[in-house]
């Protein structure tokens, strides 16, 4: 978060796109992410097998033309589980980040607008309080109180996203409040709320977009971690973390059961991080200049 510099001036559109296409990390990351999102969408209309259908006589088969990623200990098709699992991961992470942005950003903007007032203090100290707990601990706390389910995993991951976006928005907004064009807007008689929405928000968007991609990948990791300890999506809904947990004792017999969901997590997170890196480079003119 710290390395993201805050630059209010938006580059013209055409340059942005061509800059993006010239950034190898953005392109690679975007392709990998697109594949996973595409596969997740595909799973709504087509999976090679019913992901929950048992076929115990054909359990623990390796990779083959019939079962591309083999079968698990209950003879269920691993490929079908992986692509439906992608859906779970992406949905949970997406909604959780959405919660974080949707609640955190307005809070941050409000805190910046009311700088050094009791509201600012209240919001930011509450954020510190949430931030003080390790994210996964909060998640485990919430899911063990409210019961394990995908919905509660979303809420848990969403809650620890709120302070991230609140702080980021506040920090970015504060530096803008000192700028001349904001002063001009104030002189023109615009209220603080209106300035926040019309002038501050558009200028911190690129910072937020970079953070969103990073939080999205963290969300996927968090979902996998929660599912691994049994607090995420409940069976039979497949989830990569759950698949990893179930494969534990079988690693010696059928290593593909652990390797495949593991690789899925690695590639998705890698893709998102590369994309985030690329975006940061593109949005940050100073980095661009230093590259040229």
């Amino acid at each position: 978060m710290a390395e993201i510099s805050i630059v209010p001036i938006e580059a013209p559109r055409g340059t942005l796109l061509s800059a993006a296409l010239r950034s190898p990390s953005f392109v690679t990351g975007a392709i990998v992410t697109a594949i996973f999102v595409g596969v997740a969408l595909l799973s709504f209309v087509w999976t090679p097998y019913d992901y929950a259908a048992l076929d115990i006589p054909h359990k623990l088969r390796g990779l083959s033309g019939e079962h591309w990623f083999g079968t698990d200990q209950y003879g269920r098709d691993v490929f079908s589980q992986v692509i439906v699992g992608a859906r779970t991961s992406i949905a949970v992470a997406l909604i959780a980040v959405g919660l974080g942005v949707g609640i955190g950003t307005p809070l941050g903007l409000w805190a910046a607008a009311k700088r050094d007032t009791i509201f600012d203090e209240l919001i930011m100290r509450a954020n510190d309080l949430v931030f003080a707990f390790p994210a996964l601990l909060i998640a485990i706390l919430i899911t063990s109180v409210a019961g394990p389910s995908a919905t509660n995993a979303v809420i848990a991951i969403g809650i620890f996203n709120i302070p991230v976006f609140a702080r980021l928005s506040r920090a970015a907004a504060l530096s803008l409040w000192a700028r001349d064009f904001i002063l001009a807007a104030r002189v023109a008689g615009k209220g603080r709320a209106r300035i926040s929405i019309e002038h501050i928000l558009p200028n911190i968007l690129n910072t937020l977009v970079v953070q969103i991609t990073i939080q999205f990948s963290l969300g996927i990791l968090a979902e996998a971690a929660l599912a691994y300890v049994g607090l995420g999506a409940q069976p039979p809904t497949p989830s990569w973390g759950k698949m990893l947990a179930d494969s534990q004792t079988l690693v010696g017999l059928a290593p593909h059961l652990a390797i495949i969901p593991g690789l899925c997590i690695v590639f998705t997170v890698l893709g998102l991080n590369l994309m985030g890196d690329g975006l940061r480079d593109i949005f940050d003119p100073r980095l661009q200049r230093s590259r040229q």
Partner: peptide, 12 residues
Amino acid sequence: RASAPIIQQELA
């Protein structure tokens, strides 16, 4: 724990 997914699916 290992039987639960089978029973769940068979009842489904």
